[in-house]
Design a protein around this nucleic acid. Structure first.
Lengths: 189, 189
DNA sequence: GATCATCAACCTATCAGTAGGTAGGCGAAT
DNA sequence: ATTCGCCTACCTACTGATAGGTTGATGATC
């Protein structure tokens, strides 16, 4: 669809990676999906490692933009956290897909060190945002029972990612909802 | 080491699957590791799908035995939960390995439906055990702030699995410890 | 007690398929 | 005239899997 082939390749690769993992799609799949020849992909992304870096960079940038937008749009910590939970739930697409970070985290041995560094940086950024969010929720009372914002954020991210993994494996979004129910029960505002 | 070649294959495959994922090892790898020819593996496990089923069955049985043992050895809910957390932490092997369930959950598309069913059953069993454990901790006061044991257990399992995934991806066991710190802080006895 | 069939366990050799990647050429746009 | 985007045509490496054969042990039969 996009006039830009490179973007079309990134879109196709991201969809595939999130649904079937980084090892779960090939240049042949991409070529078929986008409508060019397999070898032509190498013109845009010389290697699959190269593609993975571009994929992760685009994803991290888009994600950061989105949570900064949430931070501006929503005023309470509780509302912000709920919005993030919704992002992870939507990314599941009824148990058929993961967010790219979880997908890539599932097969680190297939990724170049550069992507591992990107993943580390992405998670650190997200933990930072979450810590601010829990602090806000602690102050404004929109998240119940917060004593240690930093520990809460580490636990919350693990729940989000773990719940997504389980829900996708069993193709049942209820597993995600069950795992998040406790946290959501603490939110208001 | 084991006189039994089949057991040696299972051991090698489990180690490989937990370290590099189910797609991360081949019959060739197994053959080299165990010291027989690649084709001979098919004598014991006709297909890789077949092997995955055997792997998951053995794992689930061993795991269930272990948590039943914990249930008998430890008297308080808090002590039992702590023992389970330790199992997951040990399985990480300093960020180089996952428990088999998380590893398999990372690549469901490579596994036969039978294994997906085994995974579902395994998680249900574990959730059941965890719910009992949170109930015990609620009653005996060894786990603080328990209001909904079933929701606690779903969240706890997600944290354990998510924390393991992240810690392995970044090869840093501190990520696991951080994610579990909040829960561990609620335990006593 | 020697022969015989059966079996598990393993072998060599090879299969078709797919992976990511490369070389070199062609046409259109700048 | 050069660069860009894409092509055809390949390549090497490796995947899981198969066919068919060898070995040695076991147990029954004569």
């Amino acid at each position: 669809m996009p006039a830009d082939t490179k973007t079309a390749l990134l879109n196709s690769a991201e969809r595939a990676a999130r649904a079937r993992g980084f090892d779960g799609f090939s240049y042949a799949d991409l070529a078929t999906d986008v409508g060019i020849r397999k070898a032509s992909i190498h013109h845009h992304f010389p290697s699959k490692a190269n593609l993975s870096v571009a994929l992760m960079r685009r994803y991290a940038e888009a994600f950061e933009t989105e949570i900064l937008r949430i931070h501006e749009e929503k005023t309470s910590g509780g509302a912000r956290l709920l919005a993030l939970i919704d992002i992870y739930r939507e990314a599941l697409e009824n148990g058929k897909s993961l967010c790219l970070c979880v997908s890539f985290s599932s097969s680190p041995e297939s990724l170049p060190p550069e992507v591992i560094a990107q993943i580390r940086q992405f998670r650190a950024m997200l933990i930072g945002w979450l810590t601010k969010t829990f602090e806000a929720g602690q102050t404004d009372g929109s998240i119940a029972g917060v004593a240690h914002p930093e520990l809460e954020s580490a636990a919350a991210l693990a729940v989000l990612e773990g719940a997504q993994l389980a829900a996708r494996a069993e193709e049942d979004v209820v597993l995600f909802d069950m795992a998040l129910k406790l946290l959501k029960g603490r939110l208001s505002g």
